[in-house]
Computed example of a mutant assay.
Amino acid sequence: MKSSDTYEAIGLMSGTSGDGLDIAHCCFQQNDKWEFTIVEAETVAFPAALAKKLSQSHLLSGEQLSLLDVDFGAWMGKQVKAFCHKHQLRPAVVCSHGHTVFHQPSLGMTKQIGLGWSLREKAGFPVINDFRSLDVALGGQGAPLAPAGDHFLFPDYEGCLNLGGISNISMMHQGQRLAFDVSPFNLLLNEVAAKKGLPYDDQGNLAAAGKVNTAFLAQLNAIDFYTHQGAKSLGREEMEGIFLPLLKQQNDTEEDLLATLVAHYTEQIAKVVQQLFPPHKGKLLVSGGGAYNAFFIGQLQKRLGNHIEVVVPDRSIVEFKEALIFAFLGVLKLNNEVNTFASVTGASRDSCGGVHYP
């Protein structure tokens, strides 16, 4: 820490897409409002063996999962140490989201691996992780956690939409912050693109060349998740139990499948925005890998019309907003300030989540 109101922190994000670890060194300053700078940021790809273990972590035995917990924490710590050495950085704290293995808040259970002590020892800096468990213990969904960052760091936007493996949205509505997962996103798009030997549909060009299957679209829109109101979240369990089986039943071309998924996402996201945004003009900030899907962004803007401006910010925000926010959640934890909103998660009260490894 440079002073009582300036903080340097590293945020680590390992998202549901499973492509790598986002590392962002950020500087936060509190004056009349919170201000931030992303000083350095990069994504470190997972080694193939580690990526495979993480993708199959929910199938491991208890002993194997415990070992992966230790190993993943140590691997992240080594990446942080190398990152700090490369850029000559000394953060006050390293704040890790971890890799989600299980997330069943209805059972009071969530599990993100990447052991804090292993991370702390290999990195050489204090660590805060396990941001979700307290909220789940308080009866909340433990997700999404980004809204506290949206609220304090991006107050000029009426809403923030993140397009990662899953799409989630955060916005002010009638004086309180609301946020929830809206739909799958890259998890399904990438699944289809992989059938053509591609990691993803670059700029949505394949989807743009496809034709929407109205019957499949109707099936997607009829999924029970979309009828739920209030705090709600999607995880691996819903992907494997509902969405992927439905996707695999289709015999369409990859282009048509992608076009239908984009139509589905556009409909579900636009419906939420139009229901909850204020009636005057507003701005929707879009981040995450899906922000590069130009076809989807165009379809969403067309659906929303001139009422709402869809804003894709500069690359550092698009790619590292979640890592930035986890760094910020850690700063709030250090100050013992609220970093999880009950209005978002459905918990019995606001809380200050995270476990500190000093």
Rank of each mutant, 00 (worst) to 15 (best):
P199T: 13
K33M: 15
G330M: 01
E337F: 06
G124K: 08
C27N: 14
A342C: 06
Q174A: 02
E267P: 01
L50N: 09
D19Y: 08
Q88R: 00
D350W: 10
F185T: 08
V338H: 07
A218K: 06
K2S: 14
Y265E: 12
S61N: 05
I325W: 02
H356M: 13
G77S: 14
N168H: 00
E40Q: 09
I308S: 00
S133Y: 07
T214Y: 12
R315G: 03
G298T: 05
Q104Y: 00
A291G: 03
V286Y: 03
F152C: 12
D130R: 00
Q112F: 12
Q275T: 07
V338S: 10
V331T: 04
L68T: 13
W117E: 15
G20L: 06
S348E: 14
L247K: 01
S66P: 03
N306Q: 11
G114N: 08
K333A: 12
P144M: 13
L134T: 09
G298I: 09
L145M: 09
L246D: 08
E40S: 01
S118W: 01
G330N: 01
T110H: 14
P245T: 10
L153H: 10
N205I: 11
Q229F: 12
H87T: 14
P279E: 08
L153M: 10
Q176K: 00
A143S: 11
A263P: 02
I23R: 02
N186A: 03
K271G: 04
T16A: 06
F277S: 09
F243S: 03
T214F: 14
L163P: 04
I169Y: 06
A347T: 15
L65M: 05
I308L: 01
A208T: 10
S96L: 04
I223D: 03
F152D: 12
S14I: 13
S167R: 05
D156W: 02
P147R: 06
K196P: 01
M1G: 10
G230H: 05
A123S: 15
C352I: 09
V355Q: 11
A137Y: 15
T110D: 15
Q275N: 02
Q219C: 01
A137T: 12
Q229L: 11
N31P: 00
L178F: 03
V272F: 03
G197Q: 12
L178I: 01
H173F: 08
E40Y: 05
E35L: 15
D135L: 13
E158K: 00
F296H: 09
Q56F: 10
A259R: 05
